[in-house]
């Protein structure tokens, strides 16, 4: 039932968590007093600029390093980072490490996900086989089961690792930059897949990523890490509206555009130009003009004007008209006008 789905039962709880490193020179804290929760069936994206401590947080939650202070609970059970066996029943991980092994089939790799559930021989029961098949189906790799893993593309490999995590049958899955090294279509597909899995299986998913625009579209909530500032939690929309996004990613060379949810590069504008016509064609024409240093201004007799029609671009300046059939031609024509 849908009503059951919207329960706010926390799968992961980390109240008052301090993370960082112990070194010979002393303790290097990365972030303090974190209060983290992930609810059942929720997909949380961990965002933040490089060096803000995303990896440290992921490594701490995965039990690969100890927190400086505080405890982590999964399903109200305190996690002992040293007890890998217990942890493996609660959390499965997809890491950035490359899988370089040969002669291992997709099926064999995914079956390793059953590791915490099988006996010392690793013999797979009928239930284990069923879980593996189901996971392969969920990530769309059923046809790949006998392929060797080292013959797959990066996107397919990532799906195999996600299938392994599903097969591990844990309430919580954590992925460290699952879309790194992937091309754009694969990045979108992996994000979409994870979102669907969270919805269908009610598993909680935490992933770190640099894909801001994708995260804004798929995440139920976002954890925004910032260097030497508190971690911000919230739905993507809340974080956009209260300006947290602009704050965190503010740089001189680009802006976060609240209206579109996209990052815009700030170009130095040296010329003005006015434009009118078909809205969609005008939008893309403006982008090209922006990139070439033109600021869009109100129509005025002293500046060039472009009229965008269904088929062509007409550049008017000093009562001279030039017709162009593409934006490329238009840009050349404008350069000619400026040269005069």
């Amino acid at each position: 039932m849908d009503a059951e789905k919207i329960t706010y039962q926390a799968i992961l709880d980390a109240p008052n968590l301090d993370i960082g490193y112990h070194t010979k020179k002393g303790v290097i804290p990365i972030a303090k007093h974190l209060n983290l929760h992930i609810f059942k069936g929720e997909m949380v994206c961990l965002l933040g600029p490089n060096g803000s401590g995303k990896s440290t947080l992921i490594r701490t939650l995965a039990g690969m390093q100890k927190p400086l202070a505080g405890d982590i609970f999964i399903q109200n059970q305190r996690i002992e980072p040293q007890n890998a066996r217990e942890l493996s029943q609660q959390m499965s991980v997809v890491l950035t490490e490359k899988i370089a092994v040969s002669h291992m089939t997709v099926y064999e790799l995914v079956s390793l996900g059953r590791f915490p559930h099988t006996n010392w021989l690793g013999k797979l029961s009928e239930n284990d086989h069923a879980q593996i098949e189901k996971a392969l189906e969920q990530v769309g790799l059923t046809a790949f089961r006998t392929r060797f893993v080292n013959t797959l593309s990066d996107g397919e490999k990532q799906r195999v690792m996600i299938a392994k995590a599903l097969t591990q049958d844990t309430p919580f899955i954590m992925l460290d930059e699952p879309t790194a090294h992937l091309d754009l279509p694969n990045r979108i597909e992996i994000m979409k897949l994870l979102k669907e899995l969270a919805q269908q299986t009610y598993k909680s998913i935490l992933l770190s990523t640099h894909e801001l625009d994708l995260a804004l579209q798929v995440a139920d909530r976002i954890w925004l890490m910032q260097t030497e500032k508190p971690l911000l939690c919230g739905t993507p929309e809340d974080l956009v509206l209260n300006g947290s996004f602009e704050q965190a990613f503010k740089k001189q060379s680009f802006d976060f555009d609240r209206a579109s949810g996209l990052f815009k590069i700030n170009y130095q504008h040296s010329h003005s130009i006015s434009i009118s016509g078909d809205p969609i064609r005008m939008f893309w024409t403006k982008r090209a003009l922006n990139r070439h240093g033109y600021e869009i201004a109100e129509a005025h007799t002293h500046i060039p004007h472009i009229d965008v029609s269904e088929t062509a671009w007409t550049l008017s300046y000093n009562s001279k008209h030039t017709e162009c059939s593409s934006i490329f031609e238009l840009l050349i024509a404008i350069n000619g006008v400026e040269g005069e």
């Binding site: 995965a62 039990g63 690969m64 890998a84 066996r85 217990e86 942890l87 493996s88 029943q89 959390m91 499965s92 991980v93 890491l95 490490e97 899988i99 092994v101 291992m104 790799l109 390793l112 996900g113 590791f115 915490p116 591990q168």
Partner: peptide
């Protein structure tokens, strides 16, 4: 075979 971190994630001591 998947590396030490993956192995730990699967419950290997």
């Amino acid at each position: 075979l998947l590396g030490e971190n993956y192995a730990r994630g699967l419950g290997v001591n």
